[in-house]
Simulated assay, not measured.
Amino acid sequence: MIQEHMASFKVIGISVRTTNENNQAAIDIPALWERFMTTGIAQQIPNKAGEEIYAIYTAYEKDHTRPYTTVLGCPVTSFDEVPAGMETVEIAAGNYARFTATGNISEGAVFNEWLKIWNTPLPRKYATDFEVYGAKAQDPEHAEVPIFIALKNE
């Protein structure tokens, strides 16, 4: 884990409200990915600031054990144009802990990293956490996916 300060940025994408209770997120999040990939959501997002795909976890009811919203989208330069059915999320500037999931995505590399995060004592903010699927995630069998966890300012 590396701690770093990040500037704020904007993302537009699609979302689902889910929870880790009863493994509901294991159903909802793959279904959101399927919709994102098969309906060409990334190509419909205007004012893109990059080709990376962000998986954002926000609007936590309390912590990772309670309901939260997952948004899949792309970074944008503005919210001037938001396609119907899409959401906007502004990632706040602040301190984040960066973890890196490595390995086969389809065999749970990212989820396994989250298991470590949930068991790591961190001063989590439970505001907005995110994963970045960039160039190093293009080979799903040997992917590298950074995961950023918002930290409380201490």
Rank of each mutant, 00 (worst) to 15 (best):
I12H: 01
I12T: 11
G13M: 03
G13P: 06
G13E: 08
I14W: 01
T19V: 00
N20V: 01
E21P: 01
E21G: 01
N23D: 14
Q24C: 00
A25N: 14
I27S: 10
D28Q: 14
P30G: 10
A31G: 00
L32F: 10
L32S: 07
L32W: 12
L32G: 00
W33N: 04
W33K: 05
R35I: 04
M37F: 14
T38A: 08
T38M: 05
A42F: 03
A42S: 09
Q43I: 08
I45S: 02
K48Q: 14
A49V: 11
A49C: 09
A49G: 10
E51H: 11
I53A: 06
I53W: 11
Y54I: 02
Y54N: 07
Y57R: 01
T58P: 02
A59G: 04
A59Q: 15
E61T: 11
E61C: 00
K62C: 04
T65P: 00
T65V: 08
Y68I: 00
T70Y: 02
T70D: 05
V71A: 01
L72Y: 03
C74A: 02
C74T: 09
S78N: 13
S78T: 15
F79L: 10
D80V: 03
E81T: 14
V82C: 08
A84C: 02
G85E: 13
G85K: 11
G85P: 07
G85L: 05
M86N: 05
E87D: 13
E87Q: 04
E87N: 12
T88Y: 13
V89I: 12
I91A: 05
A92Q: 12
A93W: 08
G94N: 07
G94C: 07
G94W: 12
N95L: 13
N95C: 09
Y96D: 10
A97H: 07
R98M: 15
T100E: 15
T100V: 15
T100S: 14
A101K: 13
A101T: 02
N104Q: 06
E107A: 15
E107T: 03
G108F: 11
A109R: 10
V110Y: 02
F111I: 10
T120H: 12
L122D: 09
L122M: 14
R124L: 06
R124M: 14
K125E: 13
Y126C: 04
Y126D: 03
Y126T: 03
D129E: 08
E131V: 02
E131N: 09
V132P: 04
Y133F: 15
G134P: 05
A137Q: 03
A137E: 02
A137N: 10
Q138N: 14
D139Q: 12
D139H: 06
